[in-house]
């Protein structure tokens, strides 16, 4: 059996930066601090590891990652392709199960949860936004959001969610009638309409041009500010780092570094 250890190849070039200590320290810059800093973190992982088996090949996608995020944080996760950031997001979002290690949402151990418990976790606590929107093409913007509000516990109204992302005027359009940026904002509205505790975004601007991407980022920061939703945004677009409380750098399946922004930039100040 061949085992590919991505980490070993890059360890020296990246130096010996211990991520776990940094991860646990909340950003202390006053202006950039998250609105609330809970004593117990909202999300926490310990030695979270994922190995993919493809035939005879094992790929270590995530290598014992320790991480925690408090309520209301807006974190940007940066890293090259294959650095493990999507795997990490899928594990904390309850879309996948780790090979070893633990992930906690408040006092719920996600790594011990059953398939149906993970579904409930996603249903009640997590909102997802993906690069390719993944809207249901046969439902209008409003109906796509309703899809979620119909099954959530204490959702906002679909119209309210769409207004929050600036799409009130276009809510009876089908996805095929909307631009890419608009579709992504519908996806955001759909993700936040349930008032999730955790908003996980995987390359939300990956398929968008700069101007449209900024509009989407504005929607995300607005939701974070107004609803206090803990938000993790994956990107390999370095330009986005400025809008986060913290920037988590992934490399080779590990967290290479965590930087706290002393001053957050508004999304409108960004371009690429």
């Amino acid at each position: 059996m061949i085992r590919i250890n991505c980490r070993r190849e890059f360890t020296h070039s990246l130096g010996d930066m211990s991520q776990s200590n940094v991860a646990r320290s909340a950003p202390d810059t006053a202006g950039a601090a998250p609105p609330t800093t809970a004593a117990a973190p909202l999300l926490r992982t310990s030695k979270l590891t994922k190995i993919y088996r493809m035939g005879d090949v094992e790929v270590l996608a995530l290598d014992a990652v320790d991480f925690s995020a408090g309520a209301g944080e807006f974190d940007v996760i940066l890293g090259p392709s294959g650095s493990g950031k999507s795997t990490f997001l899928n594990l904390v979002g309850g879309l996948d199960t780790p090979t070893s290690g633990e992930a906690w949402f408040l006092d719920h151990r996600l790594t011990a949860a059953s398939e149906s418990a993970l579904t409930r976790y996603r249903r009640e606590h997590v909102g997802f936004v993906f690069q390719f929107y993944n809207l249901v093409p046969s439902l209008t913007a409003r109906e796509n959001v309703r899809l979620v509000t119909e099954i959530a516990h204490r959702p906002m109204r679909a119209e309210e969610a769409l207004e929050l992302v600036g799409l009130k005027e276009r809510m009876d359009h089908f996805p095929a009638q909307l631009s890419g940026g608009e579709q992504q904002r519908v996806a955001i509205a759909r993700a936040i309409a349930k008032r999730p505790d955790l908003l996980l975004c995987d390359e939300p601007t990956g398929a968008l041009d700069s101007a449209t991407g900024v509009v989407v980022l504005e929607a995300l920061t607005k939701v974070n500010a107004e609803l206090g939703t803990t938000t993790l945004v994956i990107t390999h677009n370095v330009a986005i780092r400025g809008i986060a409380h913290r920037v988590i750098n992934f490399a080779n399946g590990r967290i290479a570094s965590i930087e706290a922004n002393a001053h957050r930039l508004p999304a409108s100040a960004i371009s690429w």
Binding site: G93, L95, T119, Y121, F128, V136, L147, I151
Partner: peptide
């Protein structure tokens, strides 16, 4: 699959 992600059983 999207619905499953959204929390549909």
């Amino acid at each position: 699959a999207s619905l499953r992600v959204l929390g549909f059983y």
